[in-house]
């Protein structure tokens, strides 16, 4: 039996091509930004920003403008609001995150519940709808992804220094507050791009799981970045393929593939270490 035509079958549909393109874009962006999310322990912040993007999406929907734009604005605003509340209130950052993101999410829920005739478009924001990505959404996502990747490339060394040793970086004359704010803004943008693919609820997995998987093995930053990119792109492509054949939600399937990879790498590392220990 020849299985090749079967495997390539989904590619003949334009909506699958768009979905694959969108998923790979999201994978590249989330994996690179995710490296810093994992290194700096910002997973909770990422989850919070994703939830806080929700009201922006609902408002954009009501105003009939691009929902990625609405989500981006809400995500970036909430990221900066969290950082400002944490700095100025004297509260711990996780407390500031809890206050800001639940408040923003509540705004989204109140607005959402007031819409009598909501459509699948909006539900897709909660749970992701990569197979429904339209061409104009794809264009916005591609432009945003390019902005994020170029910004990361430009400030990469400075971001690494500030993350590794904030005091040393400040002493060397780097404006650590500016770089931290830039990083938060980039996380917000990355989330806004990804929300349409995997949804508000699962977007943190795209940020954290690929980088976390690579972190299990990486000895240096290059390995961490390359590993995270490989895991993210593979999960996205394999997830869409799988969801096409088993007819399941694509966002959830993508995340499940990434989570499975994480589990396999973790177990493999444990086995390898035990072998080494046993000599």
């Amino acid at each position: 039996m020849n299985t090749m035509p079967d495997l390539l079958e989904p590619l003949q549909y334009a909506f699958v091509q768009r979905a694959l393109l969108a998923a790979v874009l999201v994978a590249l962006v989330c994996a690179s930004v995710g490296v810093f999310v994992v290194l700096r322990g910002l997973a909770f912040l990422g989850d919070a920003i994703a939830h806080a993007a929700f009201p922006g999406v609902v408002i954009a929907f009501l105003m009939k403008v691009n929902i990625v734009l609405g989500g981006s604005i809400a995500a970036v605003v909430s990221a900066l609001a969290i950082s400002a509340v944490a700095r100025r209130s004297g509260l711990k950052e996780d407390t500031a995150i809890g206050v800001v993101f639940s408040g923003m999410f509540a705004v989204g829920i109140v607005l959402f519940s007031s819409i009598r005739t909501y459509t699948g478009d909006l539900l897709g924001i909660l749970f992701g709808d990569v197979l429904g990505v339209a061409t104009d959404q794809l264009v916005v996502a591609a432009i945003t992804a390019a902005v994020i990747l170029i910004a990361l490339w430009v400030i990469w060394r400075q971001l690494v220094f500030v993350s590794f040793d904030a005091i040393g970086a400040a002493a060397a004359g780097l404006n650590t507050l500016r770089y931290d704010t830039l990083l938060l803004g980039l996380i917000g943008l990355a989330i806004a791009v990804s929300v349409q693919i995997v949804g508000v609820v699962l977007v943190v997995a795209m940020l954290v799981t690929p980088a976390a998987t690579a972190r299990l093995l990486a000895q240096d930053l290059r390995a961490l970045v390359v590993g995270a990119l490989l895991v993210a792109v593979f999960s996205s492509v394999a997830g869409i393929w799988l969801s096409y054949y088993v007819n399941a939600a694509s966002g959830g399937t993508i995340v499940l593939v990434a989570t499975t990879l994480f589990g396999l790498v973790w177990i493999a590392r444990g086995v390898a270490r035990r072998r080494v220990a046993a000599g």
Binding site: L39, V160, S163, F164, D165, A166, I167, G168, R215, A218, Q219, D220, L221, A223, L224
Partner: peptide, 9 residues
């Protein structure tokens, strides 16, 4: 004050 667990050489 430095993050020595980072994957850096």
């Amino acid at each position: 004050t430095v993050n020595w667990d980072y994957p850096l050489r």
